[in-house]
């Protein structure tokens, strides 16, 4: 699951907290960033590594919305439908993408390229509606035309910065 360097990093992290459990969130992030999602096996692995029962870890993973319990597509389109975006057409945009790709919330296209997800406020309200891709890049002031271009771009292997 982890190589030597990563294990070393976790040991280093442990020294900074009075309780071992506190390392759990950082470790879960490491897993997700490496594998894209958090599987049952990786939760068990983390549990053995940190001496935390699997049940607790499952509780934590399912509590936080940003941890993926299932594999996601290469491009995870996180469309904000929170109030500022809603007022400027966030829901319409979400529906447009969902229709275009033929998938519903938190579903992945059969070719494994796209996942679409409705998310809460990403703090980019002045340039609403917007979406974030793979927890990284922001795309703002979106229109259906821009979405068409972007999806075409992604299909042609657009590289995220």
């Amino acid at each position: 699951m982890f190589d030597e360097n990563e294990l070393k990093k976790i040991e280093e992290l442990k020294r900074h907290y009075p309780q071992g459990k506190a390392v759990l969130l950082p470790v879960l992030w490491m897993i997700q960033e490496k594998y894209g999602w958090i599987s049952t096996d990786s939760m068990k692995f983390a549990g053995d590594l940190l001496g935390i029962p699997y049940e607790h870890i499952l509780g934590v993973v399912s509590f936080y919305t940003m941890f993926n319990e299932h594999p996601v597509g290469k491009y995870n389109l996180q469309v904000c439908t929170n109030v500022a975006c809603m007022l400027r057409g966030g829901y319409e945009l979400f529906k447009y993408i969902s229709d275009k790709l033929g998938i519903n919330n938190k579903e992945t296209t059969s070719d494994g390229m796209f996942t679409i997800e409705e998310v809460e406020c990403l703090g980019s309200c002045a340039t609403a509606p917007m979406m974030q891709v793979n927890n990284k890049e922001y795309y703002e002031n979106l229109t259906t035309e821009k979405i068409d271009d972007l999806i075409k771009d992604f299909q042609n292997n657009h590289k995220l910065t």
């Binding site: 900074h16 309780q19 459990k21 506190a22 390392v23 759990l24 969130l25 950082p26 879960l28 992030w29 935390i52 509780g59 934590v60 509590f63 936080y64 919305t65 940003m66 941890f67 998310v119 809460e120």
Partner: peptide
């Protein structure tokens, strides 16, 4: 100073939930 990253839970903005989250618990 150490940085702790959240994981997408609005309630973690509440002080005691935030502290629970730092401790590796559900917020």
């Amino acid at each position: 100073i150490r940085i702790i990253r959240g994981a997408g839970a609005f309630v973690c903005g509440e002080s005691t939930a935030l502290m629970a989250s730092i401790q590796g618990m559900p917020g």
